[in-house]
Amino acid sequence: MSSKPKVAFFDFAGCEGDQLQIINLEEKLLDVLSQVEIVSFREAMKEHSDKYDIAFVEGSITRKSDEERLKKIRSQAKVLVALGSCATIGGINSLKNAWPSLEEVKKRVYGDKAHYFETYPSRGIDRVVKVDHYIHGCPIHREEFLRVFKALIMGVKPYLPDYPVCVECKRKGNICVFEKGQFCLGPVTRAGCDSRCVSAGSHCWGCRGLIDDPNVNAEKEVLAKYGLTVDDILSRFRIYDDYRYEEIKE
């Protein structure tokens, strides 16, 4: 028992939909449990221990006071994995960053009681601590979690694609969303989801964030061909990736 890796789950601001995907492994969850010792998983269990090897962290950092808890997790974990878009890139929470001032955001929601509450621009956890591995997506893909999980318990570096969703989408034989007169972030978004939204009949919303070195010129050609502008795409991208949008803008 003691030789199994100790695994802990933590969450910051988010919908806990990524931890839910782990519960949604259903019967396979029992296989996962047989390989490791879960020492903390607040959403599913009461027991808690601060001794762990692998920490999975969900949610974005949205207030200064959360940094200390995250830094403590980092200091105790041998391996830290960011789980889901909020943790990997800031995610949907960073939509609030688009407001001219966060004071206005607080007032909009809490009125004259705004001063009770603390907030700052939402960001991925790697803006606060070093992150070893990323499992992108909103929500994460259960199969990708299993793939990373297996690699980690075997001591192998998990593979993270650095090509756009279009590659997977073409491999699937989907009709291009642009050809259907719709908008898509597939050309610049990191693959690894098996183009699930396009394959399900929707389009790519960019939840896995930008690839490291997006082919900007090719994207501009696609946009020009379909009568769209860079602003169109940036506006869409801000839904998940506003924190980096602000960094790129600067």
Partner: peptide, 19 residues
């Protein structure tokens, strides 16, 4: 941690809100 959804959706288009 408060997330401010009521402010986050302001400025977004009608076809994005449910997402």
């Amino acid at each position: 941690a408060p997330r401010f959804f009521e402010a986050m959706v302001v400025g977004r288009k009608w076809y994005e809100l449910h997402h």
